[in-house]
Design a protein around this nucleic acid. Structure first.
Lengths: 233, 233
DNA sequence: AGCTCGACGACTGTATACAGTATTGCCAAT
DNA sequence: ATTGGCAATACTGTATACAGTCGTCGAGCT
C-alpha cells in the first residue's frame, strides 16, 4: 500500500494537454502585453492561430476566467480584464498581508543552508542587468523564502495575485529597472539579516514594506494610464 | 465616452449557460456531502445524469479545478479534493488574517444603518434553531460587514476559502449547532460593539479570534476522520 | 504461486457539425 | 441627422463523432 521508494515525478505523470498549452500561451501573451487590457478573445481566431479546434481553446479560457485574467459572460466575447488603480493597489495590499504572514511563518524553519541560498540569489540579483533574469531571480527569492513556511494555500493565493499584476510589473521593470533593482536588493538584504536573527515580526514588517514600495514604484509609472476605479463595466 | 448614468444590471446581461448550472450543481453536491472526498467524477456518468453532452460538463469541471475543489490531471479521472487537517487549519488561518483585515478596513465605513442591520441579523441568528437558516444568517452577517470595506479581491478570496471549507462546517453545524450558535452570536455582538466604538484594531482582533474559535470547533468534530497531512497523493 | 505482457474495455481529449444568441449594418420613418 | 426596426452575419454554446491514453484482467511463463 505504500508508495514506491523512488520519488514520484509528477512531470511525467502529468502529460500536458492541448488546452494546458493554450492556457499558458494566453497567460504569457496577457502578461507580456501582446494582449492588452480590453483585448477581445475570439474563439475561432485563437483556434485557427493555434491550429486546433475551439474546444481546447474554450477550456483554456474557462481557467483564465476562474483565475480572474479575463472576463467572460454568456454568449459574449471574452475580454482581457485590466486592473484599475484601486484593484492594483488592493492586489498589493493583499500581497503585503499574505507575504508578510508567509515570511514570518517561514522564519523558524529557515536553516543556514536556505539563508545562504537566499543570499546567493540576492547577490546575483544585485548584479544582473538583464530584465528577464531579474524577474526570474526576484521570483526565486520570494519563492525560496515562502516555501519554508509550508503554507500551500497561502502560496497559491500569492501566486494568483502575482499573476494578475504581473504585466504591470513587467512594463515597469522593462522601463526603469536598475535604480529600483538596487533598492530591491537592499530590502532583500534587510529581510535576510532579520531572518538570521530569528526576528519573525521584523521580517513580517520588512516584507510588508518591501511590497508596499513596489506598489509605489509601479503606480508611479501607470498612474496616468489606468482608470481610477474598478467599476468599469 | 462615459458609461451610462443608469446602473448596469448584470443579472440580465448574464444569462446563464448549461455549464454554469452544472458547475453550481457540482459545487452544491460537494459542499452538501453527496460527493465525498475522493469521489470520482466520471464525465459520461455526469453528462447522462444531467441529460447533456460531455462538453458543458468538462467546462464546469475546469472551473471547479481552478477553484481548487477537485483534482484533475490529464487523461485521468477527476476526484473531489478533500482537505487534510493541516489544509483545513491553513484555510482558517488565512480566513482569520483576511477577514480581520477586511473587518478593520470596514470599520470607518460603517454607518449607523449598517450597524443596525448587523445587529438585526445577529438577533435573528441567536434565536433561530434551523440549521440552514443559521448558515444563511451567519453568511449574511459577515458579508454585510465586509462589503463596507470595498475590497473586492479580498472578498473574492475569502469566498473561495469559505467555499473550500464549507462542507466541513455544514457537517459540524448540522451536528451540534445550538451551544456553539449562542457563542457565535455573543462573539458577533462583541464585534458590533467594538465597531460602534470605531475601534478598528479591536475589531480585527475580535474577528480573528472568532474565526480561530470556529476552527477549533470544526476540528473537534473532524479530528479523527481527517488525514493529518496534505501530501496524500 | 507470483510475475510479465498484451489485448480489451473504459474513459478522457479533440475535432467537426449543428443550434441558438448577440452584433452589425442598412434602410425606412420621423 | 437621428432613431427604430429588421435582416444578415459572426460568434458563442452544445451535441455528436472520432482519436488517443490508461487501467484492468487474464493468459502464459518462470
Amino acid at each position: 500500500m505504500q508508495g514506491p521508494p523512488i520519488a514520484s515525478t509528477p512531470e511525467l505523470r502529468n502529460r500536458r494537454t492541448t488546452s494546458d498549452h493554450i492556457a499558458d500561451a494566453l497567460r504569457a501573451a496577457i502578461n507580456g502585453g501582446q494582449l492588452e487590457d480590453g483585448a477581445v478573445l475570439n474563439q475561432v481566431e485563437l483556434a485557427e492561430h493555434f491550429g486546433v479546434s475551439r474546444v481546447p481553446v474554450r477550456e483554456a479560457m474557462r481557467r483564465l476566467e476562474a483565475e480572474g485574467l479575463i472576463d467572460a459572460s454568456a454568449h459574449r466575447r471574452a475580454v482581457v480584464r485590466g486592473l484599475s488603480i484601486s484593484r492594483l493597489s488592493e492586489a498589493y495590499e493583499l500581497r503585503a498581508l499574505l507575504e508578510g504572514h508567509l515570511a514570518a511563518a517561514a522564519v523558524p524553519q529557515l536553516d543556514k543552508a536556505r539563508l545562504d541560498r537566499l543570499a546567493a540569489i540576492n547577490r546575483e540579483l544585485r548584479e544582473t542587468t538583464d530584465h528577464t533574469r531579474y524577474l526570474e531571480l526576484n521570483g526565486q527569492f520570494h519563492t525560496t523564502l515562502y516555501e519554508a513556511a509550508e503554507r500551500p494555500l497561502a502560496i497559491e493565493f500569492v501566486d494568483t495575485l502575482r499573476q494578475r499584476a504581473e504585466r504591470y510589473v513587467q512594463m515597469w521593470s522593462r522601463g526603469r529597472g536598475l535604480d529600483r533593482g538596487r533598492q530591491v536588493a537592499r530590502e532583500h538584504a534587510t529581510i535576510i539579516r532579520l531572518a538570521r536573527q530569528g526576528d519573525a515580526d521584523g521580517v513580517r514588517r520588512a516584507v510588508t514594506e518591501h511590497i508596499e514600495h513596489t506598489l509605489t514604484a509601479v503606480l508611479e509609472l501607470h498612474e496616468d494610464q489606468l482608470p481610477a476605479n474598478g467599476d468599469a463595466s
